[in-house]
Design a binder for these strands. Structure first.
Ligand SMILES: [Mn+2]
Ligand SMILES: [Mn+2]
Ligand SMILES: [Zn+2]
Ligand SMILES: [Zn+2]
Lengths: 138, 138
DNA sequence: ATGAGAATGAGAATCAATCGCAAACAGGGC
DNA sequence: GCCCTGTTTGCGATTGATTCTCATTCTCAT
């Protein structure tokens, strides 16, 4: 597994206990975490950690390509470890359930858009909202 | 042109001068507006209008299907009149340029996701970020 | 072990968005 | 046109997320 970074241009960053802690909390999470929840979980293991440190490092991790920032309908952001296959999200607006999916059509679509607009795309975020089968019957 | 509303269940809403003003500012805008900029432009014609009224009516207009709320990379939301063909956005992270595009692949993709997950999708937001041809040469 | 630079904790500051409430308004019925 | 009732508005206060400031602590190459 390879980290997505352009060779050599990533500044060396000190390894701190806070960073180790935060990454392992994100890694062990069973769902998408927002900053506050990450802070809550990290505080259980290091009661001194500061919310500002959480925010600062979320940005660091994202720049390093370790995690993805996601906008799941709310104003606030959610975070998750970056995985091999890109995936996108489908959220039920009634029960809040989040479903992850992927499709080769996304690749195709991005390729088309890049070609047609002479753009080089670095970030793809597809957000779908609707009603899951349970919530469909109003 | 048909407004997207389920028959008869839309409560009648008083037409106020503020609503007329806000809609016409949005309509005449040459680009996507956020609440603050909409407020600024509306204030030029009605210096008494309140920012809270702007926010309240943006929600009303969206519920009525008159406008679309867009997330263009920033935390805050941008708004634009709803148009016939759905379109999505491509933003240059260097110069901020916003390009609108559409593709039949989106319909296809959404249909696929709906079918595979037994979901009924009500909102599609595809956000692409990258570098435009000008900003590509770093 | 040292020193320069980077990261941290705590609280203040910022910024978008929302709320509560009294006053003003819209629009159907008379 | 006037009245009545439910809506909407302006305003200021408030919330909630995120960022900033700065003194202190930490990391790591030397
Ligand atoms: Mn995910
Ligand atoms: Mn647009
Ligand atoms: Zn549901
Ligand atoms: Zn550009």
């Amino acid at each position: 597994m390879r980290i997505n970074r352009k060779q050599g241009e990533m500044k060396a960053r000190p390894v701190t206990s806070q960073r180790r802690l935060l990454l392992s909390v994100i890694q062990e999470a069973e769902r998408h975490l927002d900053a506050k929840e990450l802070y809550r979980r990290a505080s259980e293991r290091n009661p001194n950690i500061s919310l500002a440190t959480v925010y600062r490092n979320l940005h660091v991790f994202e720049k390093q390509g370790l995690i993805n920032e996601r906008h799941l309908g709310q104003a606030r952001c959610y975070y998750e470890m970056k995985r091999l296959g890109e995936h996108q999200h489908l959220v039920c607006e009634a029960c809040g359930q989040v479903i992850e999916f992927e499709s080769p059509l996304i690749r195709k679509l991005v390729a088309e858009v890049q070609r047609k607009n002479n753009f080089s795309v670095t970030k793809v975020e597809l957000y779908l909202e609707g009603h899951c089968h349970k919530c469909k019957e109003l």
